[in-house]
Nucleic acid binder design. Structure first.
Lengths: 132, 132
DNA sequence: ATAAGGGTTCCAGCAACTGGAAGGTCAAGA
DNA sequence: TCTTGACCTTCCAGTTGCTGGAACCCTTAT
């Protein structure tokens, strides 16, 4: 399989696949003409990576998860640990975003959005964090 | 005011303030010795930027908001537009993260997290996206 | 005189790609 | 046979918003 096929079948852009090879996540063989030659297992790995990235795991997490995936002697505790950690981070991000959104939507709601210059959004940004 | 004072009073790291000057968000004067000399209005601008960044606005949004802040002929509609746009993006991010979290927390919940190798998390990453 | 604690510049690096340039390879059509 | 087009290759630069570090200057106190 050439990179184009793998891209189509994995859903990952060819650029990304090359990048993943660059950082050592996959090691496709090479045809005599220099083209990358992917086997089914490479494709499988890439699909794994695509799904892990889709869940927001960092590349380093992905690398570790992949190692565990291929390590018969892994323990599910190791995997769960990574996942739980990531889950906590996601929760934190959500909490942050929610706070931003709450503040921001208040401001947006209070702003007339007309042709006049008065604007509670700018007023809020312009002065001390008076909560509202 | 030297940069250290402004950092303390604005809550922004000195590095960040230099960076903001670099990209043209503030233009402090200079003392004869080369030190940046901030006036109250520079501090005010930086505090504005800090708050806008704290609400997640991009640097470019911040730049535009700052222009509007200083433009007496602005309309609140322009401001609201930027803010609403940003709000939409935040909502989208939250939705994405929530979906990740839901999937991930299901997987984490199903994983024994013990010394055995069987792991629903890896199984899920390893095969087609069978929803659960 | 010197040491501490400011300040300055510039360069590199982070994450995770993405875009583009310059060029090699291959299969098919005129 | 030549050429066209769609592939593929590498390498370099840019993205976002800083952050760390090196190497150096300025000021004040001891």
């Amino acid at each position: 399989m050439n990179i184009g096929d793998v891209a189509a079948r994995s859903g990952l852009p060819a650029k990304t696949i090359r990048y993943y090879e660059d950082i050592g996540l996959v090691r496709p063989q090479r045809d005599p003409n220099g083209y990358r030659a992917f086997r089914e297992q490479d494709l499988h790995k890439l699909a794994f990576l695509g799904r892990a990235r889709g869940l927001g795991f960092s590349i380093e997490d992905c690398r570790n998860l992949l190692h565990l995936y291929e390590d018969e002697t892994r323990t599910s505790a190791e995997v769960k640990d990574i996942a739980q950690h990531h889950l906590d981070e996601i929760d934190e991000k959500i909490a942050n975003l929610r706070e931003m959104r709450d503040t921001l939507s208040d401001l947006v709601r209070c702003c007339a959005g007309d042709e006049r210059p008065d604007c509670p959004i700018l007023e809020s940004l312009g002065s001390a964090p008076g909560k509202a």
